[in-house]
């Protein structure tokens, strides 16, 4: 699907890149993502007398979808701020708010070379998402290091306090419950008794967070680019916020991105025990098992919110893209996960 009239887009890009005689040699829409619209463009232009070939990524705000309401400028600001951190992220170029250019706001960044894993569930005990053990071990190290860098980043000095500091105490958890309750309300399923039970339990049992950290919010295999056995970029910062780092930890441990038994590796990379002990050792942050259990339930609530929003986007005729509809059609799986963990919490106290 073409983004826009080729010559008009070429003129715009030439002006922004400070070049001339720009041509778009290749343009395609990436199909892996299910939320933001991502386009890859190979461009050639002249700058300062030199011929330049460059691959760029254009991330455009969708009309509607899984994580609405959308504001693509937030992801742009996060990625731009993280350039000054130890986290490996793509270089950002500019943000375009003017809908006259490509109908909706977008930003442009470098296209980092490499591949992205697509994680699917597989019950074959011999299945390996990453076939080479040395490569898997190397990626596991980078995976932990980058998560530690995210959680150790000084978000205030990076200028990320615009994300909203929940402050110490229970607010990290309570703000997330409020946020996702509102999302679920807008999606029209807040009055499901299961959701009400879960929200009330989470509010009653919110844990204290001693130090507010930057939380990626979608940290897993499938959301990084890798090349030559190393992670070359951490992607998908759409759900990033300030809060409790256990949110990211429990997300990494998620069942949807574990390798099948008997390995049961988290994110198809390493055992849960190795992941948590290495994370603790490198970050200096103690892992609290009770908090992991708590944030698992919050994560299940979040999944209900995302799937219900996707379903609602279809139901309300907000999008012609059927991906959100397909995602929303399995909402019962999100309810089932929420029910399973709510049962554990209600039975255990």
């Amino acid at each position: 699907m073409a983004l826009a009239d080729n010559s008009r887009l070429a003129s715009y890009l030439a002006e922004k890149l400070g070049g001339s005689e720009l041509s778009i040699s290749k343009e395609w829409q990436n199909t892996e993502g299910w939320s933001m619209e991502t386009f890859s463009l190979d461009v050639e232009y002249t700058k300062g007398g030199n011929k330049i070939e460059q691959a760029i990524i254009l991330r455009r705000q969708p009309v509607s979808g899984l994580l609405e309401p959308y504001d693509v400028s937030i992801e742009y600001r996060i990625l731009s701020a993280l350039q000054a951190s130890k986290v490996i992220v793509p270089e950002t170029f500019w943000y375009e708010a003017d809908p006259a250019v490509l109908e909706r706001p977008f930003y442009v960044m470098e296209k980092v070379p490499g591949d992205v894993h697509f994680v699917t569930q597989n019950s074959d005990p011999d299945y390996r998402l990453i076939a080479d053990d040395d490569e898997r071990a190397s990626l596991a190290e980078d995976f932990i290091d980058n998560l530690v860098h995210i959680h150790q980043s000084d978000w205030k000095s990076l200028g990320l306090d615009f994300l909203g500091d929940p402050g110490p105490g229970k607010n990290s958890a309570l703000q997330q419950i409020d946020y996702w309750s509102d999302v679920i309300e807008r999606a029209g399923v807040r009055a499901k008794p299961l959701v009400t039970l879960a929200v009330n339990w989470l509010r009653t049992n919110a844990p204290e967070t001693d130090q507010v950290r930057l939380v990626h919010g979608d940290y897993r295999t499938g959301n990084f680019i890798y090349q030559h056995s190393h992670i070359t970029s951490i992607l998908d910062w759409e759900m990033t916020h300030l809060g409790d780092p256990h949110e990211d930890l429990v997300y990494v441990l998620g069942a949807l991105w574990r390798s099948p038994a008997p390995t049961d590796w988290v994110c198809h990379l390493l055992s849960e025990e190795d992941f948590l002990s290495k994370y603790e050792q490198r970050s200096g942050i103690s892992v609290d098992r009770d908090k992991l259990n708590y944030f698992q339930l919050l994560l299940d609530l979040k999944a209900v919110g995302i799937m219900a929003t996707a379903a609602n986007a279809f139901a309300q005729n907000k999008t012609e893209d059927l991906k959100p509809a397909a995602f929303g059609s399995i909402l019962d799986l999100a309810y089932a996960a929420l029910a399973q963990h709510l049962n554990e919490r209600l039975s255990s106290c």
Binding site: P193, L194, L197, N200, W201, I330, D332, L333, Y335, A336, A339, L342, N343, L346, S347
Partner: peptide
């Protein structure tokens, strides 16, 4: 809350099997 949750359980399980 656990009692009413358990009353819900059968239908949640039924719906999961329909996926």
């Amino acid at each position: 809350e656990h009692t009413v949750f358990m009353q819900l359980g059968k239908n949640l399980f039924r719906n999961m099997l329909l996926v």
